[in-house]
Amino acid sequence: MGLDVDDATLKALQADNFDSLNEVVADTAFDRHLRFFNFGYRPVGDEQPAGPRLGAGFPNQDSAQLLFQLVGDADLSERDVVEIGCGRGGNLWLVRRTYQPASITGIDIAPRSIAFASEALPEADCHFAVGDAEDVPLPSGTADVVLSVETSCTYPRIESFFREVARLLRPGGRFLYTDLMPVELVDPFIEALGALGLRLDHRRDITANVSASRDARAARQRLAFGDRPDDDRSTMAEFVGESGSRLYDLLTQGDYQYTILRFTKVDEPEPSDDDLLSPEHQERVRHLAALAVELLTIPSAATPR
């Protein structure tokens, strides 16, 4: 996968990758229990977990913990909560169980993930739709809270996504954002969002917690995906961030930080087409998006395009 393909192709390929992951999971006994596709968060040292205590049978405690850490002190009750890149809807499902929001809305580019989420959450206050984070099919000013969990690193033009977040949020709304970010891009991302009227409230490097989750859980999670052809196994190792995978290396070797950022929309600046990121940083973003597509392509499922 080079950088020679256009953005639309990169996004379509990434949608295929996650659709394929849904198919792999559908062949296992874990399908209906698997609501999250993220690396999770594990408290380290004598750190206490955040949020309500969950029983041993709760599927994917580390992903639940990532959400609780991300939400922090943000108030979600009676709010309209939108998640962009929602996957199978796990975060929104847990938001609904935990915080009593007014409504939840999830957008994802992979149709099979959206199908799973819609079926799992058929209630009237739950909405899911296929859509692109860089061109979200929702009206302006519809969200009190926008969530983004481990998805933005695959967007080829992330500043379009930032503009969409600012557009969707009502004044005073919160943007709760976490992902693996190139270290040198964390400040530029915060500045870009600042230029869109979003004030940073909280910033935390959680790389150690996310790697602790991968060390503890990844191998076991990959086994749960069943007995795959050899070529698929290394891709499954990427999806779960197992030690030895490229994504695990990115996470642990210092060039990337898994970061939590919380913002409040304090301003509604005049719309402008000025670039929010330097060409060099934009290039870095695109490079990461292309790499993510390449690493997450399941060989036995890949269809020539």
Binding site: A29, A56, F58, P59, R220, Q221
Partner: peptide
């Protein structure tokens, strides 16, 4: 026996047995 504390069993183990 507590699944998490005594048996070191996680939700995947539990789901396997329940299945």
């Amino acid at each position: 026996s507590r699944f998490a504390d005594d048996l070191d069993a996680d939700s995947i183990d539990l789901i396997e047995v329940v299945n």
